[in-house]
Design a protein around this nucleic acid. Structure first.
Length: 202
DNA sequence: ACAACGATACCCT
DNA sequence: GGGTATCGTTGTT
């Protein structure tokens, strides 16, 4: 571990108060840290997608504000956790109030809590622990309880920090977003080139 | 009260 | 590469 205590300081809200494409790129290589039942579960963000505040038919905001997507319309730097069938996905809200954009976290390179992740994920294959938006939610025990959680608060059970940048080259690749039926041609998926923990290569 | 619908994962062939 | 499990939200009767 880095002895520098700044490694545990969350990224500030201003980090998220920009266009989602920009925040998406900046989030690559950052560290997501979950505190759960006294344990630390963490991983480096290696794959993300941007969902735009306007004219994005694939975004949950497209048909307006509902009970489900309310968090999207709120302050940047909060977690938007929603369910997909029996699974969960997590976004981080970007821009500003009433500009409902976000970045979907799609894959992590696991760093801390590997043993716990292996148990909750029911696999020891390191490439299946957190390579996928719902897989990483399982690995970090992220569920609906964390919907609306402020990830810029140092007391939060879920934060994002600057990672130890020395380890990865961080060349960024771009592709269409995965698993959507509308706006499936927009190049809004970003991932760290050649990182094996990316969920899918295109 | 109900039926349709996914920003998925897993297990097959 | 295709089928399916099985969940909450949403809009419609």
């Amino acid at each position: 571990m880095n002895s520098n205590s700044s490694a545990c300081v969350p990224l500030p809200r201003s980090f998220y108060e920009e266009a989602p494409e920009k925040v998406a790129r900046k989030l690559l290589g950052k560290m997501m840290i979950r505190r759960f039942e006294g344990k630390l579960l963490s991983g480096i963000i290696v794959e993300v997608e941007a969902y735009l505040s306007e004219n994005d038919p694939a975004s949950h905001n497209f048909k307006g504000k509902t009970k489900r997507n309310t968090v999207l319309f709120g302050e940047a730097g909060h977690a938007y956790v929603h369910s997909m069938r029996q699974y969960y996905l997590i976004d981080i809200v970007t821009e500003s109030i009433d500009n409902p954009s976000s970045v979907l976290i799609r894959a992590l390179e696991p760093i801390e809590g590997l043993v716990e992740m292996q148990i909750t994920r029911r696999t020891s294959d390191p490439l299946k622990l957190a390579s996928g938006p719902s897989r990483l939610c399982q690995a970090l025990s992220i569920d609906k309880v964390l919907n609306g959680q402020d990830v810029t608060d140092s007391e939060s059970p879920l934060i994002i920090t600057s990672a130890d940048v020395s380890k990865s080259q961080r060349l960024i690749s771009v592709s269409p977003r995965i698993g959507i039926s509308k706006a499936s041609d927009s190049l809004l998926r970003f991932y760290i080139k050649d990182n094996p923990h990316v969920s899918l290569f295109r």
